[in-house]
Design a protein around this nucleic acid. Structure first.
Lengths: 152, 152
DNA sequence: CTCGTTGCAAAGGATTTGCACAAGT
DNA sequence: ACTTGTGCAAATCCTTTGCAACGAG
């Protein structure tokens, strides 16, 4: 809740790899956290808006590079929700996504939902599932009913 | 197992919507089935190879249009496995994908893995999960061990 | 015949890359 | 100072679209 600090682990993680702490990296990470589900483009736009007419916002290519870095550091995760661009979210609050293919609505669900499946994969294949990346497609209740109704 | 027939439902589904059965559509569907996990580009390449120097293969744009159509008809599904292009697979044999983020290996898993999670989503949210679209990211056993070893 | 389909080529959008300059440590 | 990070612009990659010719029903 400390309004100032962008994220606790950022500086440390960077130093651990001999990398540098820059304002761009702090701002991109902050934007990801605020937007919840933001595409690279949206994150860039947000930063541009925050910067106002004066301050400079990170370049688009920097946003992409930074996002990739932050993901490698384990601070953010990305998921493909629909067709277009992937969305990024902060790794802090782990959760998985449920997306309605009809209306596009995104619902966040507790990771415990996948516990059983994850354990079975670990046992059977030695595979470690990354809950942050999980996105489940399907149809939400509202759209399912709407479709049933429209069924002439 | 019938070498000739591309797929049972194709002709019927098309007629049901007043659409036409074309050789391109048959061939694209067949290619999707053969390739198991093919990107639009790979599917196009495959068709070009099959056609040989004589026969004509469907155009790239036709491949995209056809894939979209087949998906709408419920004959194929697509999933985003990694960064780039999505992969398509036949809807016949329902299965979900497990992808190693390190080596990129794709493993097909039985849908029953998700049964518990799917049921809970249905009960809690009224959400119907589409198993064909599910892709789980993570690290496979081999890569996990490799990483642990390299850990200087 | 009539209308859906295809091929071609060009447009479009998203993401990446090379390089010289700016900035962190 | 030394080395990494950034901005800029061009290059790529993936996908979509307009339109005239083609072919299934």
């Amino acid at each position: 809740m400390s309004g100032k600090r962008g994220a606790p682990g950022l500086a440390g993680r960077l130093r651990a790899e001999g990398l540098r702490l820059t304002s761009q990296r702090e701002r991109v990470l902050a934007a990801v956290a605020v937007l919840e589900h933001g595409t690279p483009e949206e994150i860039g736009a947000r930063l541009r808006a925050e910067a106002g007419p004066v301050g400079a916002a990170p370049d688009t290519s920097t946003v992409y590079r930074t996002l990739e870095l932050l993901e490698r550091l384990g601070l953010v995760w990305h998921t493909h929700l629909g067709k277009g661009a992937p969305v990024y979210h902060a790794a802090e609050h782990a959760h998985l996504h449920v997306v309605c293919q009809v209306c596009g609505e995104i619902t966040s669900v507790d990771p415990s939902l996948m516990e059983a499946a994850a354990e079975r994969l670990a046992t059977d294949l030695g595979f470690t599932v990354d809950v942050g990346h999980v996105a489940l497609s399907g149809t939400c209740r509202a759209c399912a009913e709407k479709i049933r109704t429209e069924h002439s």
